[in-house]
Every structure is written in structure tokens, then in C-alpha cells.
Write a protein that binds this DNA or RNA. Structure first.
Lengths: 166, 166
DNA sequence: CCGGGTCGCTTGTAGCTACAAGTGTCACCG
DNA sequence: CGGTGACACTTGTAGCTACAAGCGACCCGG
């Protein structure tokens, strides 16, 4: 069976997108590992907790906000807990659930780390784009995201977060 | 030091971009692993070889075309060689270099695998975008790529590939 | 109140990647 | 020529992720 091939425009866009998807995590990881001994995913976990009420979230909710599977999150949170950046406690209202909470040390870590991370994001992404391209990117990434995440778990979490910001 | 924070538009775009970067590799890997027992990176390696003259490339060139480090490529090519999909031979003109060549079995594998992979790419990316968004994506990804890859190795390789297609 | 089914999470293992170090080759310079 | 440095890989190891299995806790029908 012969597939419907990609047009030249699509192929050009695809090769560049693949390159970005391949290289961007390495750049983010590299800066954070050098400056804070954190993975980008570690940082994402700490950042989501830092924005939550009481700096606390259930594992499942934290997993959707970080686009992670539950096993992966469980391992990462265990390592962060061993470093004293996060605490885990059984949820009082549901014996199955676990609440993850950012400790004071974790909060300090986020505050220390954020400037350098933001600078990296600006340098490698937003400084390269016009304001118009930023809104195009939001639309494009949003559209793709709906296909990648059919149940819309991530999308829903993003909407909720946006509403909280007002 | 207080950083220049992201605007709401930038934050919205950033969260969606991060989600795509996090989820897209998993979707691509999943389909290819199920249907062909290949990583997306494996497939990328085979695909680049399949488009090269004599289906042969030097390891270094192959590494830049797949956005990989040389150690990573070396491990992957060794595994592909063990499966009979690729051959390695010392380069006659440069004793240091190694040429990787796609075997007939590897060529067959690519031809078998391409349709399903293309369908996945269409389904999760291009079917979600308008033609206008495709060209916007090319521009955006290209601009970001220049920042991620300062020496322009990838960019140069892409240009060369485009010229070969005419 | 009890049995099956789901949910929420953790644990164990296999596989891939990053980083650091090592090997052999080339190119240049005196 | 001999030496120095750069180049093109390869190999070994530590660390992270995916997948599969397992364990309580909850819920609901009978």
C-alpha cells in the first residue's frame, strides 16, 4: 500500500519540528542540570507544585499537569523526596491517594532556579519569535495537542490553570 | 535577581509547546515499536540512510542529520547491525571514519514501515493544521532551530537535503 | 457484609541515553 | 621523520523512562 506522501512544505516543516523536539529537551536539561542538578521534568514537577494551593497536589493531578505517566512521576517524586525538596503524605479523605507537597527547601530551589531557566527559554525560543509567531505557536501547539491527548486531560488542566490566573 | 517573566501569551504558548515536546516522541515511538519494533530514532536513522547515495553515510554525517550525538548513534547503529538492518565498514579514504550502509533487509524494513509512520504523522500533526499553519510552523521551528543549534549543523544539512530534492 | 471490579499508586526490570574515558588515525609543524 | 593536537569513533557506566505486575483502598450489587 502506497501512502499519501508529505508535500515539500509539510516535509520541511516536519524535519524542523522533529529537530526541535529532539534538541529542545537536551538544551533545557543541560542548563538545569548544570545550574541546579535538576532535570527539566524535575523542574516542571516543582513548578506545578509551587503554583498549587498549599503547594500540594495529588499524584494523579500532578501527573496530568506534567504530561507524565504515573509510574514515571512516582519514581521522580521519590528521588525529589530523598533530596528533601518534596514531601509525600497519604490523603486524609481518600486512603488510596497520595498528596505531594513542596517543602520550604523545594520552594527555595524553585525561586533560585527560575531566573536561569526563564533566561534559557527566552534565549532559545521566544527571542527568536515575533509576537505574531508566539500566538501562531499557541494555536498550532494547541491543535496538535488535541490530537496527541485525545481524552483532553492536558488541555483541561491548562484551561483550569488559565482560569485560576484570571 | 528578578527575571523578566513570561507574558500570558508566552506562557500559554510555552506550556503547550512543552506538552507537545513531551508527548510527541511517545506517540511516535509507540506506533513504531508496536508495528515494527523500532524506535522513532531508529526509524530516523534508517530513513536518512535510505535517502543517501548508495544508502551510505559516514557516522558523523548521519549523526548531524538525525540530531544525535556520536556516542548515541554508535550504540544505535550497533544494535541495528546486530539485527541485520545496517552494515558498518571502515571508510577507505579516511582510516578514522566509518561508513554505515542500509542493507537490503533494512531497505525493505523502511518501505514496510513508512506508510504506517506517515499515517501517524498525518493523524497527529498535519491533519490538525491548515496549510497556512504548516508554513507558519516551518518558519517558527526554523527560527527556534537556529537558536538551539548555533553552529547551524542541522540547518545546513536540511538546506543540502532540500537542494538535492530540487 | 462480602465479593468483584475499579482506582491510585508503588515497585521491579529491561532498555535507551548521556557523559566520560579510551583507541586508533590524520594533519601539521619544526 | 618525531611530536603534538585534533578528529572519528567506540566502549563502559550511571541514570532515567517505559512496561508490567502487584498491593491496598474504595465502591457497589446482592
Amino acid at each position: 500500500m502506497e501512502p499519501r506522501w508529505l508535500t515539500d512544505d509539510e516535509m520541511a516543516a516536519w524535519l524542523r519540528l522533529v529537530a526541535v523536539v529532539e534538541l529542545l529537551p537536551g538544551v533545557l536539561d543541560g542548563q538545569l542540570r548544570r545550574d541546579a542538578a535538576l532535570t527539566h521534568f524535575d523542574y516542571h514537577v516543582l513548578a506545578m507544585l509551587s503554583e498549587a494551593p498549599h503547594r500540594t497536589l495529588r499524584m494523579t493531578e500532578l501527573a496530568t499537569r506534567t504530561n507524565a505517566t504515573l509510574p514515571r512521576l512516582s519514581h521522580v517524586v521519590r528521588r525529589l523526596e530523598e533530596r528533601g525538596l518534596v514531601e509525600r503524605a497519604p490523603c486524609p479523605s481518600d486512603g488510596r491517594a497520595t498528596n505531594a507537597r513542596l517543602t520550604d527547601a523545594g520552594w527555595a530551589k524553585v525561586r533560585q532556579t527560575a531566573p536561569g531557566h526563564l533566561a534559557t527559554v527566552r534565549e532559545h525560543v521566544f527571542d527568536a519569535l515575533t509576537p505574531e509567531q508566539v500566538s501562531q505557536l499557541e494555536a498550532i501547539a494547541g491543535a496538535v495537542l488535541e490530537r496527541l491527548d485525545p481524552e483532553g486531560r492536558v488541555a483541561v488542566a491548562l484551561e483550569a490553570a488559565a482560569r485560576r490566573r484570571g
